[in-house]
């Protein structure tokens, strides 16, 4: 096989990748913010003693974790407008869908972090007269956060990968931009290879950071 690689095509169309890359970054940050904002209270509810609070949160988390992200995205894009009459543009849809999806995972990370703190810590906090919220804020959360940071970083890496699912609803992120370019210049080998490498160069350091953080905090606490 003597294929003539022409990676020059990447340089010629750099603006296509820039535009797609910016969209990918925006979707990543937007959905990550949404996932955190929704995931933290969701995790608290999930760990609540009260059934009325715990059950809906549990149901949501299990449902999201038990269905494919791609199905969730197309459902929000095609079904939600039919049911509610609310029509969202593709970018808002993908931010919302990935945010709602990742929130379930953030909630689980959050709950696992809180559970990983020794129960004796809560006893000690109560024994000096702290209330539940004060103990959570001053004693449990600062310790839990250290345990949560490595899996959060990992989840962030997953979330970057999920953004490529936006291509199925025509969101102009990197994969969609690449597809569009391939349709014009017909260079799938170069373009997809470059795309894979570009994602790897961004995501791999994040995974390394997560592993480093895990070792760092393991030594600290």
């Amino acid at each position: 096989m003597s294929y003539q690689w022409h990676f020059g095509v990447i340089g010629d169309y750099w603006f296509v990748f820039l535009r797609g890359g910016l969209a990918t970054i925006w979707i990543t940050l937007g959905s990550a913010a949404l996932a955190l904002v929704l995931g933290l209270p969701l995790g608290l509810l999930r760990g609540s003693q009260r059934r009325l609070l715990r059950l809906p949160a549990t149901a949501y988390i299990e449902f999201v974790r038990g269905t494919p992200a791609l199905v969730q995205i197309v459902w929000i894009y095609y079904c939600l407008p039919l049911l509610t009459g609310l029509r969202l543009d593709p970018v808002t849809t993908i931010v919302l869908a990935i945010g709602l999806h990742a929130a379930a995972f953030v909630a689980e990370i959050f709950r696992a972090g809180v559970n990983a703190v020794d129960r004796g810590q809560l006893m000690a906090a109560y024994s000096i007269g702290m209330g539940h919220l004060q103990a959570l804020r001053r004693i449990i959360l600062p310790q839990a956060v250290r345990k949560m940071i490595p899996p959060f970083i990992n989840e962030f890496a997953s979330l970057i990968k999920l953004t490529t699912l936006g291509s199925v609803i025509a969101v102009y992120e990197l994969l969609h931009a690449a597809n569009g370019l391939i349709a014009t210049v017909y260079r799938p080998l170069e373009i997809y290879t470059f795309l894979a490498l570009a994602f790897f160069v961004v995501i791999y350091p994040i995974i390394c950071l997560s592993q480093w953080a895990e070792r760092y905090f393991a030594r600290r606490i």
Partner: peptide, 12 residues
């Protein structure tokens, strides 16, 4: 005041 078998000092 309460003192526990495992100390339960706040490690952070």
């Amino acid at each position: 005041g309460m003192v526990f078998q495992n100390f339960n000092l706040f490690p952070h």
